[in-house]
Amino acid sequence: MVKTERTSTDVLVIRIEGRLDAASRAIVEPAITRALQSVPCAIVDLSGVSFVGSEGLRLFLMLRRKQGSARMLLCNMQDHVREVFEISGLLPLFDVFTAQHEAEHAARGNPT
């Protein structure tokens, strides 16, 4: 469901797989919260997310509130996941990148 990979001392990539809804929120939330507390920047790779529900969207809003000084970047959204983010109006609230390397580039302080 959640896999983490440290690409540098400052950046942690979190890969989420499957459905992101009320049921999976209990697993995903602590993992990302821990990551945001341990590194200055977390990249959330959503390429494996097949469905995002309202509870999943609310999770990102909650993480955004709790992230403090850490950065949270989202990448590799599938079209239908992006569509949900767009319709909910959440898309402009996050730094969203089409590919992981773009997010990593931005994480290193080079905005694309």
Binding site: L57, L61, H80, I87
Partner: peptide
Amino acid sequence: KRLSSSIVEGIDAMLLT
């Protein structure tokens, strides 16, 4: 079906907010 799901989840998130 896909659009219906996207709209339902998106609007639901706004309502929960």
